[in-house]
């Protein structure tokens, strides 16, 4: 049974955190649909900060517990029982949490293990890349069918991801669609086989960790794209130059340039 509001004494985390070779794996775990409440968002917020501050973490993978749902979004039973002011602060906190995820200069990959609808897709949209499990579910923003709008960044991030008209059409119809169609739209970057889905995502994520890649460069590319896309070009180019300058002073940039000149494989350290 999903949590509606967790008691103050609850110790079971609704977002489980584990680290695996430089990757933080964040699992939303509130069966059956991993719907989120204020309590889950707080756990997610805490997990994001933990991954952000941990120098040993280079990539974050966000997924859902079980095989059926990444997340079906906000817990509708909870929304039906709390006063409007709580709903407002709940949405505000969710927005802040997802912005924290988006602004963390470490690559975030959403591993879509199952249905990714409503607020579930809004969470995934705040991630940098989305990898889906083949035939594991539907994706979409059907909030309009409940008489509301996708209010955790969906109207903004979906339009930025796939363009205004297509995003608008999907949101006003509320249509849910296959991961294959999402891939054609550019909403999902890849679809992995059902068997051993998460290990495959972790294999994919490891390429962005040292010694394979300079993870600081990966993180700053993310920062340049995520922030740069939201400001005028001149400022974005300025941001890009400053981030590049930061990287020029890094050990990994020195190693990368030297290894290239010496025609050997670079060994990055994430420094």
């Amino acid at each position: 049974m999903a949590t509606v509001t967790a008691p103050e004494t609850a110790t079971q985390k609704l977002v489980q955190y584990r680290a695996d070779g430089g990757i933080a794996i964040l699992t939303m775990a509130d069966p059956p649909a991993n719907t989120y409440t204020y309590e889950m968002m707080r756990d997610l917020d805490e997990a994001i900060l933990r991954a952000r501050f941990d120098d040993g973490i280079h990539v974050v993978v966000l997924t859902g517990a079980g095989e059926k749902f990444f997340s079906a979004g906000a817990n509708i039973r909870m929304l039906a029982t709390v006063p409007p002011q709580f709903k407002y602060y709940f949405c505000l906190h969710a927005n802040e949490t997802l912005q924290r995820l988006e602004q963390t200069p470490k690559l975030v990959i959403a591993a879509l293990n199952g249905h990714t609808v409503g607020g579930g897709l809004e969470i995934a949209l705040a991630c940098d890349l989305r990898i889906a499990r083949r035939d594991a579910g539907k994706i979409g923003l059907p909030e309009v069918t409940l008489g509301v709008l996708p209010g955790t960044g969906g109207t903004q991030r979906l339009a930025r991801a796939i363009g205004k008209a297509r995003a608008l059409e999907l949101m006003v119809t509320g249509r849910t669609f296959s991961f294959d169609e999402a891939q054609e739209l550019g909403l999902v970057q890849d679809i992995f086989d059902r068997q051993d889905f998460l290990p495959q995502v972790l294999d994919y994520a490891r390429q962005f960790c040292p010694p394979n890649k300079a993870s600081r460069a990966v993180g700053r590319i993310k920062r340049a794209v995520q922030t740069g896309a939201e400001v005028p070009l001149a400022e974005a180019l300025g941001l890009e130059r400053e981030l590049q300058q930061l990287l020029f002073t890094s050990e990994d940039a020195h190693e990368g340039l030297t290894a290239y000149a010496e025609k050997r494989q670079a060994k990055f350290k994430g420094k």
Partner: peptide, 11 residues
Amino acid sequence: PDQRAQDALLN
């Protein structure tokens, strides 16, 4: 008339 019904029908 309901998008959810259209989606469910496809399914």
